[in-house]
Simulated scan of single mutants.
Amino acid sequence: MLATMDGIERGGFAASFVAQDFLGMAAPRTIKGLSRNSDATGKKNTAYATSVAIREILSGPSLFIIPSAILWGAAKFFGPANRVKFDYIKGIGDQFNDFAKGKSAESLGQTEAVKKDFYKEAFKNMLNTSLDNKVVDIDAKAQHFADAAMEIEKAKSKGFIKNLLGKPVAGSKEDLTGALMDEYVKLKKQYMPVSDNIVGMSFKTKEGTLGTSLGKFIDDLKNYTNDITGTMAKKAKKGFKGSVEEAISKFNFSRAGSRFVTTTLMTLGVFSFFTIIPKLYKSTCKTNPALQGLEGPADANKPAETEKKDGGVENENK
């Protein structure tokens, strides 16, 4: 049981939710559905069990598949920063605007060079905020985390199955992230009092503090930086002469807006699909299988037969 739960956890939130939903809800409900009204019919209610299975199998995974598909489309057509949540676009974007002061659009279009320097500033922010400004060699640590993050970006995933089973794969994205996480935990134990949230992280923005995790922070930095540097490179190629700060602010506003629209579409997409699910499983059976065995006599729903005599008077005593 412990091994199963560890595997579910390694699969991430989506895998955890779907697995627990299936084991705790879908499977028991489907099995229970087989015996629906069986005491009255004397047989298994396979039609009802099928309708339950269709509903349960479609509803759980769709909570993740539909938003993921919409998010993929938004990132594909409107830029990878759409993968970053609304508040985090603004938080990371504000820090990037500070980082970009005095720099040209051309220099900000050099993705790898920008990442090396900007990631250092971002991790410096995160480490200082998370560890209460207690890290002595903060610049060196921040650069180390930045370099490791860039290495993680380029690393390949070990694959869902190997990750689920917890098999180590040297140089994989998951194992490199885990190793860097271990380093962060050591720092937290060294500089901070004992805490239940030993892996918790946060970074400071102009409007407050945002919580995050190492994997999410790296992904957010990657998606935002790839998008903004690509945008600045295009501007530089067109001979951009305007205010870099203003251009970045417009970019942040645009991506925050498109992310808001994307989030709305993801929500509407899921709700819309949920309205279709009943039609899908009802189409497999023209009658309500939940009522099998509860119907009255075959002619119970037929109107009483009447016979008209001369003069149109009805006679029910045929």
Rank of each mutant, 00 (worst) to 15 (best):
D21K: 00
A47F: 05
D87Y: 14
I92M: 00
N82I: 03
A122D: 03
N82G: 01
T46R: 09
K120R: 07
A47L: 09
L58H: 10
K103F: 02
S51C: 09
P67G: 11
K101S: 02
I66V: 06
S68M: 15
K101V: 07
P28G: 02
A122F: 03
V114A: 03
A100C: 10
L23T: 11
I54K: 05
I89F: 01
G93A: 11
N37D: 01
Y119Q: 07
Y119D: 01
I92C: 03
S38H: 07
R29T: 11
K76H: 12
R36Q: 06
A105S: 12
F99H: 05
K120D: 03
A49C: 10
A100I: 10
I70A: 06
I70D: 01
I89A: 02
T111K: 05
A40I: 07
G60R: 08
L34R: 02
Q110L: 01
I70T: 08
K85S: 15
F118E: 04
A27M: 12
D94K: 15
D21V: 06
E112G: 11
R55Y: 14
I66W: 01
D117T: 12
N82R: 00
G79W: 00
R29D: 10
D87F: 15
K101N: 01
D98E: 15
R29N: 11
R55V: 14
I66H: 02
T111G: 05
Q95T: 11
